[in-house]
Amino acid sequence: MERTFIEEDWMSKPDALVYDNHPETLIDRPLHYCPGCHHGVAHKEIMHVVEELGIQSEVIGVAPVGCSVFAYHYMNVDMQEAAHGRACAVATGIKRVRPDKTVFTYQGDGDLAAIGTAETLHAVNRGENILIIFINNAIYGMTGGQMAPTTLEGMQTSTTPYGRNIKDIGYPLKMTDLVAHLPGAYYVTRQSVHTPNAVRKFKKALKKAFEYLKDERGTCFVEIVSNCPSGWKMTPVESVSYIEEKMLPEFPVGDLKTPEK
């Protein structure tokens, strides 16, 4: 590997590596995502959390249909690929027959909030002891930037070329808010990963979610407000501003339901 730095003596010391880009739980291979895509950040930090909690052998993940269809190419845990929208049903099947395992789904907004609305709401309503990780970037990335259920009002996509007109096509669907109302939900939070501090908060929330699962008191649900530079027709840096200025006012971060509340 070509290195872009000069080696220091102390670097070989055991504690010198303070951020390992490929922990055991993350497979070392180039990601197929576009430059600047938050899927990469989410994958990496989810696997960091799995590593830090030492639960690699307990975890079974469910990958969705969408850009992150190949999540199992990167996440070094047992995984199953679900049909579009069906991840929560697949996770239910796994969890019911392997109740001692930690089961999570990783789903985009089209998958979870459009075609998989029923599976998602009913899994939460049954209080399935699974973790649902919801990547909301307000667009269908894989198929070429079409409108998603979470697309913002006025936002241009390849199927809303004049901007999303709510009179015609309805409002951005706030699945996380819906889910938080269900008694089967145990911990519901919305986070983002667009700044270093946001990533830190997301990791903290995700760690809590994994730990809450052990209580077996219901579904944990973590939304990640994310970007799609290619679909949004922006540079990655511009997409960070867009999240700050447009996405977060519509999808504010924070806990929507905690076991204490």
Binding site: M11, D15, V18, D20, P35, G40, P196, V199
Partner: peptide, 19 residues
């Protein structure tokens, strides 16, 4: 500070700090 590594989507950055 690891800020760069945290936001790197491609797991391209590892960070070293003198113990």
């Amino acid at each position: 500070c690891v800020n760069c590594a945290l936001v790197c989507p491609d797991s391209a950055i590892s960070v070293f700090r003198e113990p």
